[in-house]
Amino acid sequence: MKAIGTFSVTSFVPTEVTQDPPVTTALPVGLATIEKHFDGEVTGRSATLFTSAFDLSTGVGTYVAMESFEGALNGSEGTFNFAHSATTGGTDRSNEFFLIVPGSGTGDLTGITGTGGLSVDADGGHHIWFDYELG
C-alpha cells in the first residue's frame, strides 16, 4: 500500500552536544528535536531525534533521524517508528535511506513494515510517502 502526505515542521529545537571523547571535524555535529504535523493520506504528528554533521553556510552535510509517528495511514490508526537519512551537497539530496522500523507498530498499524521517502519542493513544500504492508 502507499500513503502520500504533506508535513510541516512545527518545532525545531537544537540541543547542545558534548562529545566524549571530544573529536573536532570540519563539519560540526548537531542534535535537535523536531515536531512535525502531517496531512493527506498520512495524518498525525511525529516526534523526531535529528542528528547531523552540517555546514549552515554552504548547505553541505548529512543527517540521520529517528521519528516516532502517531496518527493514521489511509485511515488505519496507530503508532510506529521510522528512520531516514540523506546527504546534501548544498542544492541536492543523495544517499537517501528510509525504513519503517519492524516491530514498532501499534493499533491498526501493528505489524507494519516498509519504506518511503521525503522531498522538499523549491518553494519549501514538504512531502512524505510510505510504501508499506500490514501483517
Rank of each mutant, 00 (worst) to 15 (best):
Ala3Gln: 02
Gly5Met: 06
Thr6His: 11
Phe7His: 03
Phe7Met: 04
Val13Tyr: 00
Pro22Phe: 09
Val23Pro: 00
Pro28Ile: 01
Gly30Tyr: 01
Thr33Trp: 02
Thr33Ser: 12
His37Ile: 13
His37Ala: 13
His37Glu: 14
Asp39Leu: 10
Asp39Thr: 15
Gly40His: 09
Gly40Asn: 10
Glu41Asp: 15
Val42Asn: 11
Thr43Asn: 04
Leu49Glu: 11
Phe50Asp: 12
Ser52Leu: 08
Asp55Met: 08
Leu56Phe: 14
Leu56Ala: 14
Ser57Asp: 15
Thr58Glu: 07
Met66Tyr: 04
Ser68Ile: 06
Gly71Ile: 11
Ala72Arg: 04
Ala72Pro: 02
Ser76Cys: 09
Glu77Thr: 12
Thr79Leu: 01
Phe80Asn: 05
Phe82Ala: 03
His84Ile: 08
Ser85Pro: 02
Gly89Ala: 13
Gly90Ala: 12
Arg93Ala: 14
Arg93Ser: 13
Phe97Val: 14
Phe98Asp: 08
Phe98Ile: 03
Phe98Asn: 09
Thr106Pro: 04
Gly107Phe: 05
Asp108Arg: 03
Thr110Ala: 14
Gly111Ser: 11
Ile112Asn: 02
Ile112Gly: 03
Ile112Gln: 01
Thr115Trp: 00
Gly117Cys: 10
Leu118Val: 14
Val120Tyr: 00
Gly124Ile: 09
Gly124Lys: 11
His126Thr: 06
His127Pro: 01
Asp131Phe: 02
